[in-house]
Design a protein around this nucleic acid. Structure first.
Length: 286
DNA sequence: CTAAGCGCCTGCATGC
DNA sequence: TGCATGCAGGCGCTTA
């Protein structure tokens, strides 16, 4: 479900409700998640601990405890984190509940179970789980030069490249299409063919669009809600995502939809012209 | 090494 | 009404 803006909005909503609270007890559901639920680790390092910080890294939500352990939550496609009065009725797909010292419970609900809940113990390498991840789009390392260097010699379509966590974290299927539209770059363009200017556009527009989406409370297509259960508003500002057949906001032409890496991808053929394909001399032309 | 495809899950919309 | 199909904000694994 959520990309960087949605996770960031959730994080910001969680922080004032979690900071300095103590986790009194933790309950786990019975359904298996993508990764095993951290029952033992929670008992050892999370229960009875005071919360000292709430942060985001990539699409992970990191809740730091006084024990120096970190609770690491990924929302996958349909994960939610919301507060409920302790003892109130459970919902279908509630998988983990953290009881706080104010008679409230933080609950992790995830219909499709693509999300995960993990614990990094006090003695474990804090950077370990993130080894191999690229920079956040807001970090200074995320630059035109960095992207061009990584792209060298590769023919990966630029949209798939931007969605690759090892390149840059947090950009998913919606914002990749939006960033490329704003940058005037065709999503199928092989990364080795992008110009320095195009990379620069992508860097600048990534930050502009992700920041705008955060300011709008994220994008709700189907079921995303923030920690207070509220929907985002950025879906009203999407230029191309989900708008196949509609008029391009820039030129009035028709927005096109294709599949790239198995994901729906939207672009304007006029504003984001397809890369020229080299003519194969061995094949007949018409 | 890269690139592409599948599978993990549930729920919803669509078409017959 | 039922049933089959395809699709969905992610991501890791397998296959060429």
């Amino acid at each position: 479900m959520p990309e960087l803006p949605e996770v960031e909005v959730i994080c910001r909503g969680l922080e004032p409700n979690l900071l300095a609270r103590t986790i009194l007890a933790i309950s786990f559901g019975t359904q298996a998640m993508r990764l095993p639920l951290p029952v033992e680790e929670s008992a050892l390092w999370i229960t009875g601990q005071k919360i000292t910080g709430v942060h985001r890294r990539a699409k992970f939500i990191l809740i730091e405890l006084a024990s120096s352990a970190t609770l690491m939550i990924h929302l996958g496609m349909t994960g939610r984190l919301n507060f409920f009065p302790a003892g109130s009725a459970l919902a279908k797909h509630d998988h983990v509940r953290w009881l706080l010292d104010n008679h409230m419970e933080l609950r992790f609900n995830d219909t499709r179970r693509f999300g995960s809940v993990q614990v990094i113990g006090p003695g474990q390498d804090k950077a370990g789980p993130f080894a191999g991840l690229g920079p956040d789009p807001f970090w200074s390392e995320f630059s035109a030069g960095y992207l061009a260097k990584l792209a060298d010699g590769r023919k990966t379509p630029v949209k798939s490249f931007l969605m690759d966590n090892r390149v840059v974290t947090g950009i998913g299927n919606i914002y990749a299409s939006e960033i490329l539209f704003s940058s005037g770059v065709n999503p199928t363009k092989p990364v080795k063919k992008l110009t320095p200017r195009e990379w620069q556009e992508i860097v600048v527009n990534s930050r502009l669009i992700l920041n705008a989406a955060i300011a709008c409370g994220g994008t709700t297509i189907a079921d995303y809600v923030n920690s207070r259960g509220e929907k985002g508003l950025f879906q009203t500002k999407l230029q191309v995502y989900g708008r196949a057949g509609e008029a391009c906001p820039n030129c009035g032409g028709q927005i096109n939809q294709i599949r790239l890496g198995g994901r729906a991808s939207f672009y304007c053929p006029a504003c984001q012209p397809a890369p020229l394909t080299p003519v194969k001399m061995s094949k007949k032309r018409d």
